[in-house]
Design a protein around this nucleic acid. Sequence first.
DNA 1: GCTTGTCATGTTATCTCATATCATATATCG
DNA 2: CGATATATGATATGAGATAACATGACAAGC
Lengths: 172, 172
Amino acid sequence: MTSPGPSKAANPRDALGFAPHDHGHCVAAAMAAAEERCAAAGLHFTPVRRKALEILLQEHRALGAYEVLDRLREAGFGSQPPVAYRALDFLVAHGFAHKIERLNAFVACAHPGTSHSPAFMICRVCDSVAEAQATPARGALGQAAREAGFRIERTVVEAEGVCPSCAEKAGA
Amino acid sequence: MTSPGPSKAANPRDALGFAPHDHGHCVAAAMAAAEERCAAAGLHFTPVRRKALEILLQEHRALGAYEVLDRLREAGFGSQPPVAYRALDFLVAHGFAHKIERLNAFVACAHPGTSHSPAFMICRVCDSVAEAQATPARGALGQAAREAGFRIERTVVEAEGVCPSCAEKAGA
DNA sequence: GCTTGTCATGTTATCTCATATCATATATCG
DNA sequence: CGATATATGATATGAGATAACATGACAAGC
């Protein structure tokens, strides 16, 4: 369950839009942006919360709460589940992260700051997750909701499939 | 956690399109249709599976696997989790039921037989669930997937909000 | 009619995900 | 400073899910 082989993604190249990018920079930039946004909004961006976001950003894939917890513990924070869930709840509540319902796991937001209805593409092979924009109010669902008199407050849109990188490997 | 008050839906009127309907008839019709479809497809519609579907149909809301298990036990079937999960897996695999990821729960399919990408409207007040059609391949997500080279195999579309019946009660 | 294989069911054990609760500490504001 | 709110730590437990193995039902082929 640890090292090589065609196992789950350890490589950030596989995630976030499924495209390579300068990972160190993207983590640092996202952290700085979060720092600013919290200061501006009067939110307490405490050490655990900061570390939890950093953990999610470093992966660019969905992490289970207990995976996050493990790393928080390694970093010297509490080792009990509520520690992780509270930090993750904060991040989700303020738009720094999202929960992937299909995986019962969490991922850093790719477009923080901008209000959005996220949609996700989840690779069932390597577990990488890419975030896109959804337009749930348009389309068939929105129409059905209007007709039924249902007031939509939040939407979960998650597509499961195969990312280009894994499709290529499989085809090869 | 059991009887009256403004608690969770016990009334089938609240669910399935959020509209009242002849419930006894709709259960019987759905069971008969499932019976036929299984016969036609050579599927083994065994007693546990039949009972599990009946349980879901009788509620018209999302039931957790353990709720289903409780009722299966009451009906004389095995009492261990795999009993429920296996029956539910069968129903989901063959389109007689869907899993609501947001709730970690299961609901009978409202349009069985027809191949479809379901979308759900989940009332956060009474937990009722209505099924609509989604068109995930169209819209922003489909476009993002095409651009990224992501092959969508399955989509989860779930809207959380307030159903007309609960909105009315709250407004009153 | 017996053997063999397949599929379904039942049971045990265990694993992962998640939250209620209480105690303690740290910050913020009057 | 002292009061109040907010955040953290720790304990315990609840809820969701699956691996692994044993048993039973039934049809196909000899």
